[in-house]
Simulated scan of single mutants.
Amino acid sequence: MPPRITRAILRWLPALAWMALIFWFSSQPDLPRPANDLLNLILRKSAHAGVYAVLALLYVWALGGWRWRWWAFGLAALYAVSDEFHQSFTPKRHPTATDVLIDCLGAYAGLRLGPHLLPVIVERVRSWAAGRDPAGAERRA
């Protein structure tokens, strides 16, 4: 397989894996929930937004960069709609337009915050992998 095709496939794998994870969660008829209804609502809707923020960023990576961010947003929105449609076939689950809106807001937030947060995250991961703490001091054994 030509290297260019191999790179393209590897770039799409994280997004596809994340989509599969979303699909799996949407297939669950009953997810664990806290006893408090308000806390349950907050956690579930925050999860919707966070999951789609990550999905949008993974789409940016798969598509090849920030110049494709609006395509990434569109793909995330389409996946949100398809996910809600999928839930209509899952017992005890109900599709809602509100969830699609929350998913889209999460994707948008991810795309707005990503350019600011990702460099910090990448630097912290690199520091950790090199055996330094985030401040740059060497770890002592």
Rank of each mutant, 00 (worst) to 15 (best):
W18T: 09
A62I: 06
L118S: 12
L38A: 15
E123L: 15
R132D: 11
M1Y: 13
A141D: 11
R139P: 06
L21F: 14
R44G: 11
A53Y: 00
R11H: 12
P115S: 14
A15V: 09
R139H: 02
R44D: 07
A17W: 02
L39D: 04
F23A: 13
M19H: 04
V125I: 15
P34F: 02
V54M: 12
L31F: 09
S127G: 14
W68Q: 15
Q87E: 03
A76P: 00
A137N: 09
R44H: 11
A20L: 08
P32V: 01
S27N: 12
A141S: 05
A72D: 03
D133L: 09
L58I: 01
A137T: 03
A109S: 11
P95V: 01
L31G: 11
V125Q: 10
T98H: 04
C104T: 15
L78Q: 06
Y79F: 03
S88T: 12
P134R: 14
R112H: 07
W12Y: 14
Y59T: 08
R44V: 05
R67F: 03
W68V: 05
H116S: 08
V122D: 13
D133Q: 06
E138W: 02
F85W: 15
L16D: 06
A35D: 15
L58T: 10
T6C: 03
F89R: 07
S82I: 00
V100H: 08
V122P: 03
A135E: 13
Y59I: 00
G65W: 06
L38T: 14
L31K: 11
G64D: 02
T90Y: 09
R93M: 11
L57M: 10
D83T: 10
S127F: 03
M19K: 02
A20N: 01
A53L: 05
L13I: 15
P3N: 01
R112P: 00
R33P: 08
L39E: 13
L21G: 13
Q87D: 11
W12Q: 08
L113K: 12
L31P: 15
S27M: 11
A137H: 10
G110P: 04
A97S: 07
A49P: 00
R124L: 15
I5V: 13
Y79Q: 05
A137E: 08
Y108E: 05
I121H: 07
A56K: 03
I102C: 12
P29I: 04
A80T: 04
R44Y: 08
R93G: 13
P91L: 01
L113T: 04
R7M: 06
S127T: 14
V60C: 11
R33S: 13
A53G: 00
A49W: 06
D133H: 10
S46M: 04
I5K: 07
A135P: 08
A129F: 07
L38I: 09
V51F: 13
R67C: 01
F25W: 10
W71E: 03
W128L: 14
W66R: 02
H86F: 06
G136C: 10
L117S: 00
V81M: 11
A80E: 05
G114Y: 14
F85V: 15
T98V: 09
L63G: 07
L39T: 14
L117K: 02
A129C: 13
